[in-house]
């Protein structure tokens, strides 16, 4: 499920960036640092949509780096148990297949007669959430689930 939320982060900025474009530098660094990461609590950060507030910088002793508390809005994606997702099959082996729905990897067991690259609709039946990683287990054994487009048939 996608959420649009406000998160906060302390950004360290090198002194060489101090100048008229400090703010732009900060934002671009934020985007570079944060987009695409995953936290167990909020899920995958898909995109930063805006910066709400940049607090007062604090010069670190010794290094000269400055720490800014930054509040930013972002879109996050967090899979939940019971959620229906559409995913692309990335790997098939004897135990089942792996699929990806955006950044999330999903494993579906016991289905071996599926082609790589095909699209499936699946239901998440379990999520394993670590601090920096989310992994899901899905099933396609339910109503309206299964392959929705075959790579062979489409072409």
């Amino acid at each position: 499920m996608f959420f649009h939320i406000v998160l906060e982060r302390n950004m360290q900025l090198h002194p060489r960036h101090f100048g008229p474009h400090l703010r732009d530098k900060l934002v671009s660094k934020l985007i570079k640092d944060v987009e695409g990461t995953c936290s167990g609590r909020h899920g995958f950060v898909v995109a930063i949509t805006g910066v709400e507030e940049i607090g007062k910088g604090l010069i670190r002793e010794g290094t000269g780096y400055v720490t800014f508390p930054v509040k930013y809005q972002c879109v996050v994606f967090r899979p939940f148990k019971g959620e229906i997702l559409e995913a692309v099959v990335t790997m098939v082996n004897k135990m089942g297949f792996f699929a990806e729905a955006g950044p999330v990897q999903i494993f579906v067991s016991n289905h071996v007669k599926i082609q790589k690259e095909s699209e499936v609709r699946l239901k998440v039946i379990g999520t394993r959430v670590d601090a920096t990683e989310i992994f899901c287990i899905g099933t396609i054994k339910d109503d309206f689930l299964g392959v929705i487009s075959d790579p062979g048939a489409a072409v």
């Binding site: 135990m95 089942g96 039946i125 394993r128 287990i137």
Partner: peptide, 21 residues
């Protein structure tokens, strides 16, 4: 809704589908 479990026949260690990766 069952999570598949796997077992190693040699050392009897158990895994679940969560460890698949």
């Amino acid at each position: 809704n069952t999570i598949q479990h796997y077992i190693c026949p040699n050392c009897k260690k158990r895994y679940s589908a969560f460890d698949a990766l």
